[in-house]
Design a protein around this nucleic acid. Sequence first.
DNA 1: CGCGAATCTCAGAGGAACCTCAGAGCGCAC
DNA 2: GTGCGCTCTGAGGTTCCTCTGAGATTCGCG
Lengths: 222, 222
Amino acid sequence: MTADRGNRLLLVEDDGKLSDLLSRLFTAEGYEVGVARDGHNGLHQALTSRFDVMVIDRGLPAIEGVDLVRKLRAQGITTPILVLTARGTTEDRVEGLDAGAEDYVVKPFEIDELLARLRALLRRHTDTSTRLNLGERYLDISSRRVVGGAAPIELSGRESQLLQLFASHPTQIFTRDDLRRLVFQDADSPGAVDTYVYYLRRKLGRDVIRTVHGLGYQMGAA
Amino acid sequence: MTADRGNRLLLVEDDGKLSDLLSRLFTAEGYEVGVARDGHNGLHQALTSRFDVMVIDRGLPAIEGVDLVRKLRAQGITTPILVLTARGTTEDRVEGLDAGAEDYVVKPFEIDELLARLRALLRRHTDTSTRLNLGERYLDISSRRVVGGAAPIELSGRESQLLQLFASHPTQIFTRDDLRRLVFQDADSPGAVDTYVYYLRRKLGRDVIRTVHGLGYQMGAA
DNA sequence: CGCGAATCTCAGAGGAACCTCAGAGCGCAC
DNA sequence: GTGCGCTCTGAGGTTCCTCTGAGATTCGCG
């Protein structure tokens, strides 16, 4: 997950100076960068080569940026796309999202923000999905809800973190100490673990988490 | 464009057996079906809720089918209407169409033909570009009004922009920062986001937008 | 069965996040 | 100019989350 060595990035940007700057920046960050100067070329590269993420400028010759996104999505390409958009009207800024882009950055932008968003994009797209199986129900990580019953059940941040851990390692037995270190910030808050197990049980039913007396807790009834 | 989720269909049919059969058929076809057994009820539902298409029988108690169409059109409702009729004379047909119905099917009819005509009706009428689904209601972007409740609710420009963004991405969670960058011009107006969420909730009900504590906001009841 | 240890349950403190709303500033229409 | 509606600010009140701690309950072993 940490190893972002050699993620392949396609940059579609017509402005020479900006293109140059960005491609060097991305390279310095460890990306393998492919550059296209217009929409046609971008489309061609995207269709003939594999990329992990794309950065596309809105104002492009030949094919406009948002159209390019649309065409790519129409071709079934699901690679995450970040759109660079000039500071315009609200519609301008939102249109990229509607076309199927995952994220957008408004120019002029902070370099650090752009890089952070790229990392977030890759991370988000890497971990398989936002859903974790809970038997009958599932946990929607991004919206922190458990869905599948009559009404969705909302979880707090901690509750969600804890449940995530259990759900992604259904057979593992976690000691209180494991959980304290993995989920809870504070070095010494031994009681908090028990409390949150209790909260989850209260919200989701006693069976979600099993107590292994003397050892710790485990995902229940998997 | 994005949301392929169930077109809402209102069926007004007094004959119990036929009503039952049709509503099940439409549901199986993927429509969200509302049923009324007489003209009064049909009128009431059409005025208080939003539908994408209506199927109305001519021979109705209380208010006759064609009269119902006329009343609906008089109320400014432009939802496409398909009329079912037992009689098939030219005059009948003309009367229904004059009243404002879009299409006409004579009983006994072929199921497939009925469905095909419904699809055609929806396709033709899909000026979805100006409409965004809000569950029971919809946002008319061009007039900046939310329609479908008792009385249409007028929104200001900002309110409309914000709601548009939520409505076109019902599952996405937007951070305050996302919203600030996308909807609000000013780089730093962190409080404005909260204020406009508050305005929308005050006008449209608390549930239109969900708070995800510590993360941001999301379209409510998705 | 009886006892200590482990676990469960829950009220509440403290702080962060959020909601509510009055009002100032601005632009536009008359 | 005057009035009105829209946008955004900022302050105060409220709600929610997190974690603590203490009493009640259950567990496992002799």
